[in-house]
Design a binder for these strands. Structure first.
Lengths: 196, 196
DNA sequence: CGATACATGTAACCGGTTACATGATTTT
DNA sequence: AAAATCATGTAACCGGTTACATGTATCG
């Protein structure tokens, strides 16, 4: 069984590991992903990226090869090691907990985005189902809280709480939408086989 | 004009300042707010609360009075100073920027929740309008991004992006709802005057 | 030729987490 | 009497921010 490492990567570390798995990249290219796409809400500052890459390398999860594209400016292109892929899987697999939904919602979306290449369809569906369930539970908690405090809370407090509830309800709806989409989708293989 | 202090409080500091303004409280009571309500997503650990309170006190924004309720366990109940109230207002006033929406959405909701006692209705409406506009702009950016990368992005990437878009659309809808609610509401004074 | 983009790094600082520590009071 | 809650604090650690530092390559 895969054991958790003593010092697991930070959330940013997993983001980098996942991007590197999509395709080998250098630090600068990774930083550009964060600054030019709405990926998670990670900062692409060198002071965050390069130390995180070094930590991943020290932990043996990625390996960097120096590339000179004919020019004289070297860049270190990183690829995941076998250990790195295993760690990525270990991060992606677990079902969604209540704490995940409250404290690490962004990270859950990041995990989902990286899941397609590393988990089976069944595992992905289980992830989405646990996400949906955990969000439903939290929405119920929030609604209970609203009902219990409705009389004492100020109008502004109530509205702010309703913003949170609406946000989580949207996530629950999204989870159902995603489940529907993934269940409908036939794998490439199946489609090929079905061709006349 | 109110000048920004050299070392403004952290987000947690403003949350504490706002709660203390709602009613004077001690550290333990403040911690309990974070652990027993869905307020923001701040941690109520003593290692966060007490140093933050000390920093607010050092900055002259709050003042603590020791209370002994007949018993022998003293507690320090904090109240905002005049300077603290001014700093709270300074934090609440500014219109919402694009960066706020991307990086500090939770803090914006916190600001809204504390606004009712310290800003005028007109200021609150301006805040909500700028919030709505900033969210609309960001939704447009995200949708453009989706359109531009739709062909190259994986199904999972697309779905994750759509989760983000749906979340922000929900916030935009909420802002309109809140604006409607606050515009309809008549102030207590107006209502009194209109009574036959 | 100047500006922008590519490319990588370091170091001080800061705030929050985790864990530890202590003791009174209330509840079961 | 034990357990839970009230109540306040400290200290090591860690990760990210900000700012600094350096140099190449490309573009207008």
């Amino acid at each position: 069984m895969a054991k958790a490492p003593a010092n697991p990567p930070s959330s940013l570390g997993y983001a980098l590991l996942g991007l590197i798995h999509q395709q080998p990249r250098a630090g600068y290219a990774l930083a550009k992903v964060f600054t030019t796409t709405p990926m998670g809400h990670y900062s692409g500052s060198p002071g965050a990226i390069y130390p995180a890459l070094r930590a991943l390398e020290r932990a043996g999860l990625i390996r960097g090869r120096v590339e000179r594209g004919g020019t004289l400016r070297p860049k270190r292109v990183f690829s995941p090691t076998r250990k790195g892929l295993a760690e990525l899987r270990r991060w992606l697999e677990p079902p969604v907990s209540g704490d995940d939904v409250i404290w690490r919602l962004d990270e859950l979306m990041l995990r989902f985005a990286f899941m397609d290449r590393l988990l089976t369809r069944a595992q992905t569906l289980r992830f989405l189902e646990s996400f949906r369930d955990a969000v439903d539970v939290y929405v119920a908690i929030l609604e209970t809280h609203r009902a219990e405090t409705a009389s004492t809370m100020s109008l502004h407090g109530r509205l702010a709480l309703e913003s949170g509830i609406a946000g989580y309800q949207t996530q629950a709806r999204w989870a159902r939408h995603a489940l529907g989409t993934l269940r409908k989708k036939r794998s490439a293989r199946t489609r090929k086989v079905r061709r006349p």
